[in-house]
Design a protein around this nucleic acid. Structure first.
Length: 274
DNA sequence: TTAAATTCCTGTAAGC
DNA sequence: TGCTTACAGGAATTTA
């Protein structure tokens, strides 16, 4: 599942290869993967555009174009963005191919099709709802423990549900929500509001540590995640709880519990996490 | 306003 | 062995 560290890895990998490059041609093999605007307008807006930058915001990859529009990619669950030589056979579920001026191809593949492609001005994308308003970046140095405390205190939903809410904090998904809560020794089903400042401070540090470590390890390849070159990350080897239900807690040895919160499986240790 | 449930979608794996 | 079924989940949408 591409979450903040996985999207950060892909954006950083692509940046030196895409900045100041022009997309000479765009082929949509599965037009509905484009959510804004209509697929024909998307192709018109992308074709001939030069990429000015490659950025990440939450789980979105944002590529400002020289037309002052943004080319936006969200990978959903199984989306893959790869930079390849055009002679590379295109695997099944390749939904879009962007031919670059240097002859290489940027390809979007997504078996489950939960991902999306967008293009438009920022104002247009926000107004249409195609690009949602996102909470702060958890790894931004300006995002402090007190900011997190203020965002959690009013919420009655579970801690896990609030961490997954992109309008509260951007970029956290099921893997790093569970990992952060285990690091912070907090139960995922506790109400987000009512946490002490000390607990929130621990959660703040845990979130940042879990995300930064995963970025250093180039993300977790637990499902179909691959980087821009098709390589797996390393972080899946370092996960303490995600995907380890029933296995021993690495802290205390007690079998890890699995419960469902907000429709997601949540793995935690009943002894270490209170 | 907020939160929980439902929906989309297909590959994988468990179970019979 | 081969088929059926459950499950995985990001986020928009629907319901309460």
């Amino acid at each position: 599942m591409p979450e903040l560290p996985e999207v950060e890895t892909i954006a950083a990998d692509l940046r030196p290869h895409l900045v100041n490059r022009t997309i000479v041609r765009c082929e949509l093999r599965f037009p509905p993967i484009v959510r804004y605007p209509e697929p024909e307008s998307f192709v018109d807006a992308i074709s001939g555009a030069r990429i000015r930058a490659v950025k990440r915001r939450g789980k979105f990859i944002l590529m400002p174009l020289d037309s002052d529009r943004l080319f936006v990619v969200h990978l959903g669950m199984t989306g893959q963005l790869r930079l390849v030589d055009p002679s590379t056979p295109a695997p099944v579920h390749t939904h879009a191919i962007f031919e670059l001026e240097d002859g290489r191809e940027l390809r979007y593949r997504d078996p489950r099709r939960f991902g999306r492609l967008l293009v438009g001005t920022e104002a247009e994308l926000l107004a249409s709802g195609a690009l949602p308003r996102l909470g702060p970046e958890p790894i931004d140095p300006a995002f402090g423990a007190d900011d997190l405390y203020q965002r959690l205190r009013r919420r009655r939903a579970s801690l896990k549900a609030v961490l997954l809410d992109q309008s509260t904090i951007a970029g956290v998904g099921n893997i790093y929500a569970d990992e952060s809560l285990h690091r912070a020794r907090l139960r995922p089903d506790r109400a987000a509001g009512g946490l002490s400042r000390a607990s929130v401070s621990r959660l703040h540090e845990s979130l940042r540590d879990a995300l930064q470590l995963a970025i250093r390890n180039r993300g977790s390849s637990v499902d179909t995640y691959r980087d821009a070159w098709g390589e797996t990350g390393l972080q899946q080897e370092e996960l303490h709880v995600y995907g380890r239900g029933g296995e021993p807690c690495l802290n205390c040895g007690r079998p890890l519990s699995v419960i469902r919160i907000a429709g997601r499986s949540s793995v935690f240790c009943r002894r270490c996490q209170r």
